[in-house]
């Protein structure tokens, strides 16, 4: 565990907490893509199956349970408790366009052709593109509330920090995982446009609004 990895994990937890608090306090999930939240739940479910087979550390296990529980809670709040506020007309991204290619790619490019390994690979590929329905929703409505922008910034920062972690681990431990690195780069690149808008607008107190 190095500082980049830990900062990345903190950023990830922070993003999830921001989102849950926003939904809970405003009693609304307006502006949030339920499709992205479902994809994240699928990501955690398929990746953290190893919770039952491999023990790494108490920290890892606690975080895995936390991610599973909070993503489940987010999906519940959006599709059950505050269903009436869910913006499903704008959340029209077709997730099968992400699920199917990720599944096929995981079957072809993986470290080992076993159920656990293919599911892990699938979750890595899916995570890299899971934010697309959310970014699509923001582009369709043309704007995002500040709190949604903070959520996206924290969520995007998490994988960017992991990239630094992988550089560090390669240099110090000679450890690297090409699948994770490739997907992590894709994931971070998808946020670049948003990062630019966040830094130039939201941090200066303006609302995130896309040019018409």
């Amino acid at each position: 565990m190095n500082i980049f990895r830990f900062a990345g994990d903190l950023s990830h937890v922070f993003a999830i907490i921001i989102l849950l608090l926003k939904i809970w306090k405003t009693r609304s999930c307006a502006g949030i893509s339920g499709k992205s939240q479902i994809l994240f739940a699928v990501v955690y479910l398929t990746r953290y199956l190893d919770l039952f087979t491999t023990y790494v550390s108490l920290y890892n296990s606690v975080m895995k349970v936390l991610f599973l529980a909070t993503s489940g809670a987010t999906v519940y709040l959006m599709y059950v408790k505050f269903k009436a506020t869910y913006d499903h007309n704008h959340d029209s991204f077709r997730i099968e366009f992400l699920l199917v290619p990720c599944a096929l790619l995981a079957l072809v490019i993986n470290h080992e052709f076993t159920v656990m390994e293919v599911l892990w690979t699938f979750s890595i590929y899916l995570e890299s593109v899971a934010i697309l329905p959310q970014l699509f929703l923001v582009s369709r409505t043309g704007e995002a509330e500040s709190i949604t922008s903070h959520y996206l910034f924290a969520l995007g920062s998490y994988r960017a920090l992991y990239l630094l972690n992988w550089v560090y681990r390669y240099m110090v431990e000679s450890h690297y995982d090409l699948i994770a690195i490739f997907a992590g780069v894709v994931q971070t690149v998808l946020y670049c446009d948003f990062f630019y808008l966040y830094i130039t607008k939201v941090l200066k107190g303006k609302k995130l609004q896309l040019p018409a």
């Binding site: 990895r5 994990d9 190893d50 550390s57 080992e112 992991y162 994770a180």
Partner: peptide
């Protein structure tokens, strides 16, 4: 590294 990389990350 590579095959059977340790999955100690989240």
């Amino acid at each position: 590294p590579g095959v059977n990389a340790k999955k100690d990350e989240l």
